[in-house]
């Protein structure tokens, strides 16, 4: 198996507090990996270090053996959803994506394609601030796949989605994964993650506490039961 993403003794400190504490883990290429942990476990900080938005205090976070900043045309290799912000509320969904497309040298025609893929064509010209949370999440996903990347990094993409939205997201992620993409997705929706992911990577208080194929980590329990055992019941 080829390693798509590797964390090597990653530390991110804020003052004396280690938000990420000597994290070493790997994500295999072509698989969906669930990145799990209680609130404040350091998931988002880890992902921000991975995509270069935060500088690690020490250690490394690499994609295909390189820092994100050193990837050529990173949008064509890695698509990222960190939160439903990231787009200008006063601009339409389409205009927001055209700004990103221009920066990455992607033709405007691709914007229409990805809007269709996330089923936002009809709302394309509506101002983003008038979108529901679910529509904002879909727009963020459209931004992530704009460059047709090999790797997707998604931080809580199911946040705020209703059951129909979650079902749509599961189908969408599966369709992306079937094309051989690597997906690293963080979420609190453990039952949903159990239906979606191949591998899991669990952290607590910035430290890795479990990693491997989903069935191996679950050990006969549900993912939620295994998670609660590993984290000492710290779900929230």
């Amino acid at each position: 198996m080829t390693i798509a993403i590797a964390f090597g003794d990653l530390v991110k400190s804020y003052g004396k507090f280690n938000a990420v504490d000597h994290l070493s883990a790997e994500v295999q290429q072509g698989r969906i990996t669930g990145f799990l942990g209680p609130n404040g476990a350091g998931k988002s900080t880890t992902l921000r270090c991975l995509v270069g938005l935060a500088d690690p205090s020490s250690g490394s976070a690499e994609i295909f053996g390189k820092k994100y900043r050193d990837l050529d045309n990173p949008l064509s290799r890695v698509g990222t959803v960190l939160d439903s912000r990231g787009f200008h509320g006063a601009l339409s969904g389409k205009a927001n994506l055209k700004v990103v497309a221009a920066a990455a040298g992607i033709p405007d025609a691709r914007v229409d394609e990805v809007l269709q893929m996330v089923e936002l064509t009809e709302a394309a010209d509506r101002k983003m601030k008038k979108y529901s949370l679910g529509m904002k999440q879909r727009l963020a996903l459209a931004g992530a796949i704009l460059g047709d990347p090999e790797v997707l990094i998604l931080d809580e993409p199911a946040n705020g989605l209703d059951p129909a939205g979650i079902a749509w997201l599961r189908k969408f992620l599966r369709s992306l994964a079937s094309g051989g993409r690597t997906i690293l997705v963080s979420s609190h929706q453990l039952a949903e993650m159990q239906n979606t992911v191949d591998d899991v990577l669990i952290i607590n208080k910035g430290r890795l506490i479990a990693e491997g194929p989903k069935e191996q980590v679950m050990g006969g329990d549900t993912l939620e039961e295994a998670f609660l055992k590993l984290t000492g019941g710290a779900l929230s």
Binding site: G52, L53, P74, R85, G86, F87, G89, A103
Partner: peptide, 18 residues
Amino acid sequence: AGEFRHGTAVATFLTAPK
């Protein structure tokens, strides 16, 4: 500053991390 106000700085620096 508008990039930070609207959160678009994230998309900007993800697209062009240098």
